[in-house]
Design a protein around this nucleic acid. Structure first.
Lengths: 257, 257
DNA sequence: CGACATGTTGAAGCGGTTCAAGTAGGGTGG
DNA sequence: CCACCCTACTTGAACCGCTTCAACATGTCG
């Protein structure tokens, strides 16, 4: 049957050794044996459909998830029930690390489009990290990178005017796409205007207006979900990012190996 | 000489086994031997005076620091040179973890008052973490907690009106003081109004007005640096924090051992 | 095709900043 | 010890950036 053939193909592609993302999501310089041990603890789950949850706030924390394809938003919920997006996630990123401390998920993760993920049971990952020094360091590095990134996001929310916020968001996306080998100036937004507005702490209408404005200024070409950056340097200047905004820098370095 | 006697007293108190903060900054359930090994890699540095830097953006990352006494602010700097505070730190907290990924400090840490710290050379800490399972888990937990906390801060900056921001800040301080055995309703602010405003993404004038307003409403008594919370529940309601704002919860749990 | 979510654009309103002026501490030097 | 200065803080009034409200356009999915 077609179905099983598809699954088999997936299986083939899915092993860490063959995975085109292993540079992003897993440590460089692991020996073949280590990579196999890592590979063995990983569950490849069925794809998660758009709108479905990978995990929800309050659920017991069992695993972290490596995103293989698609994109995901993670968000918290305040006492009034308002959803606050804390990040969008692209292939090669590890999700759920913020739940280690409390053993309970503190954010929900929802698919923005159909995604495939690798599930890494955290206890086994921790055990493995004791045996593979590079792995422990990699986990710590990933969390450290996330912290850095949140600092920058925080700086944007605290001070930046709306133009800078959106510019900053677009530049960052651009960087992240480039780091993954995609075009840095031509991409599709998998998230809604509403989600962007939410992440950046502004009203949807403002996002809409800014897209129009940026287009008039010749910075972008926007058509629905599709964005083409026409003047990246100008956009970067507008962004006025914090000097160390480099979620992607280390990813880029990693790719150069 | 008096001086050397003081130093000796400090020495006595400073070992992890005797340190009143070890529950906050270090993992529970370490065996005596493990604790001693940990203790051996720690440098107790001379006190850092108010206004001095513990580390600065761009400096090579060598160590993380456990705060023993006093308080510290950490901040990033954007391209325009504007300082954005990302957090205030109290005794028992570990600083510098956000520099692991890039091997360079991405925030600066500046003393708000005279502080004493333990310096933990990170490479040695990592080695030790491979040998002491509880330590690896503890490091991951600490970073995870930090991530959680930043999510909540982010949610505050993205949406909350100014009253909620300040209320949220005060409630959080209150929690953290309680977790350390201090009064949850009666404390001194070691940071300036300016710093609070900066952290919360608002103008100093607004902070000032809110303190007056809260006082009129009978929520607080404020006199310069000293704050007395008179109606904590009301303040908590105002805060409308994200449902999982629990930097201190795990600390509290840890203390119950 | 209709119904509903998503996105766009315009106009009014307001929350919070900015500007301005004044007060109060805390430290320094005479 | 007091006069001085400088920084931190407070309070008032004007302004403005962004939100909110409203109406409409466009896609999308059953």
């Amino acid at each position: 049957m077609t179905k099983s053939r598809v699954v088999n193909l997936d299986e083939l592609r899915s092993h860490c050794q063959k995975c085109s993302l292993y540079r992003l999501c897993m440590p460089m310089g692991l020996e073949q044996g280590d990579l196999e041990r890592l590979d063995r603890i990983i569950h490849r789950r069925r794809p998660v459909e758009k709108g479905e949850y990978l995990y929800r706030i309050g659920e017991p924390f069992q695993s972290v998830y490596a995103l293989r394809a698609g994109s995901i938003k993670t968000f918290t919920i305040n006492q009034e029930g308002h959803e606050q997006i804390v990040g969008f996630h692209l292939p090669g990123e590890l999700l759920g690390l913020d739940a280690i401390a409390g053993k309970v998920h503190v954010t929900s993760a929802r698919a923005l489009e159909t995604v495939s993920v690798c599930e890494l049971p955290f206890e086994r990952l921790e055990e493995l990290s004791l045996q593979i020094p590079g792995l422990q360091h990699h986990l710590l590095s990933l969390m450290s990178e996330e912290l850095q990134h949140e600092h920058c996001h925080l700086a944007v929310l605290a001070r930046a005017p709306v133009e800078s916020r959106l510019a900053s968001f677009l530049c960052q996306l651009s960087d992240r796409f480039r780091a993954r080998g995609y075009s840095a100036t031509d991409f599709n937004l998998s998230m809604s205007r509403n989600d962007i507005a939410n992440l950046l702490g502004m009203a949807v209408e403002t996002i809409s207006r800014l897209f129009s404005q940026f287009q008039e200024q010749g910075l972008l070409k926007v058509e629905r979900k599709h964005v083409q950056i026409r003047d990246l340097p100008a956009l970067q200047t507008l962004a006025n990012r914090c000097t160390t905004d480099v979620r992607t820098e280390s990813a880029l370095n990693r790719q150069e190996h």
